[in-house]
Amino acid sequence: MNSQKAERWKKYFVVEAFIIFAVAMKNDLDQVKADVKRLHTQGVNLLNAIRDEQFPEQMEQHFTNVLKKDYQEFKKGLPVFKSAYQPWYSEAVSLIRILLPLRHNDFVRLYEKPKGRQEITRENYVIEDYLSDTVVTAGFDKKVVAGPDAAIPAFEQQYNIIGAVLNTIDSSLLDIRREIQAGLLDAELDKATLLAKNKLLRAAGVVAGIVLEKHLEQICERRQLKITRKTITDLNELLKKNEVIDFPGYRHISLLAELNQICIQNKKREPELSEIADLINGTDKVIKTVF
């Protein structure tokens, strides 16, 4: 296989890897979004279930007199809180750890019995207490100090945290997508560096150019810029036109595009090691600084 064909195949395989990864990533993140929506819906049912279990008369009155709905028909669709909660919690806590990490400890705290808790009150009664049928009484008349109904506010807060995840999920998934894409581009750039170390300078320049092109394309897509041609030069012009980059940044990318063209099209001379180093290092700088 001659060098020209080898370069075409290298470029083909790198592009294919990008496409396969992008499709898989989109499917995975779309599934995460669907899972959060499902958990939110299940949370509504669980909230109604725990309220109905503790205050059935009030719930029936509310549905019959206020909502004008068939209460008995409504009850048929409710889960049993104790059996349905644990699977819901296990899935929800995992997603919150990823999508809303600042609220993860709050979510867990509302479920787990506090370590070192000296006494149980309505204020520190948690869902784990509810699941174990904990009831605290005081005095000769066994007045209930804290019972199962005290778990309702705790679950309401958990449900609201899931609501917060749902409200911020698009930005959270965008952040995750950016991190994954950045990791992929870094890995491809490492391949270019390895090719350069093995004196495969033209191939290294082709791979670095593909990485730069893909990064610029992602910037345009995130900013909803209409892409007509997906070359480094065209994408660079589009970003400058829409004032995403300033003139020094535009000029820097233009120089990188020229170095890439030497690797792709200029057969009159081989690219120099210093040029490939400039292309790889310059691409790395763009990936790290231009968004």
Score class of each variant (00 low, 15 high):
K5I: 13
F13K: 09
I20Q: 12
F21R: 15
A24I: 06
A24H: 11
N27I: 12
L29Y: 10
V32K: 11
V32L: 14
K37H: 05
H40K: 14
H40R: 15
N45A: 14
L46Y: 02
A49P: 01
I50R: 11
D52C: 13
D52H: 09
E53A: 07
P56V: 06
Q58L: 11
M59H: 02
M59C: 05
N65L: 13
V66T: 15
K76L: 08
P79S: 09
F81G: 09
F81T: 10
K82C: 01
P87M: 12
Y89I: 02
R97K: 10
R97T: 09
I98M: 08
L99D: 12
L102A: 10
R103Y: 04
F107S: 11
R109G: 04
R109E: 11
L110E: 12
E112C: 06
G116I: 07
R117E: 15
Q118K: 13
E119H: 04
E119W: 00
T121M: 11
Y130G: 07
V135M: 10
V135F: 04
T137F: 02
A138K: 15
K143P: 03
A146C: 04
P148I: 08
A150G: 01
F155E: 07
N160T: 10
I161G: 11
V165W: 04
T168S: 15
I169N: 10
S171D: 15
D186R: 14
T193Y: 06
K197L: 15
N198G: 02
N198A: 12
G205V: 02
G209D: 07
V211S: 05
I227Q: 14
T231I: 02
D234F: 10
L238P: 04
K241Y: 03
N242K: 09
V244Y: 01
V244L: 12
D246Y: 05
F247Q: 11
G249P: 00
R251A: 11
H252M: 13
I253D: 05
E258M: 11
L259A: 07
Q261D: 13
Q261K: 13
I262M: 02
K268T: 07
E270H: 07
E270W: 01
P271L: 04
S274Y: 00
S274H: 05
S274K: 13
A277S: 09
D284C: 09
K288T: 03
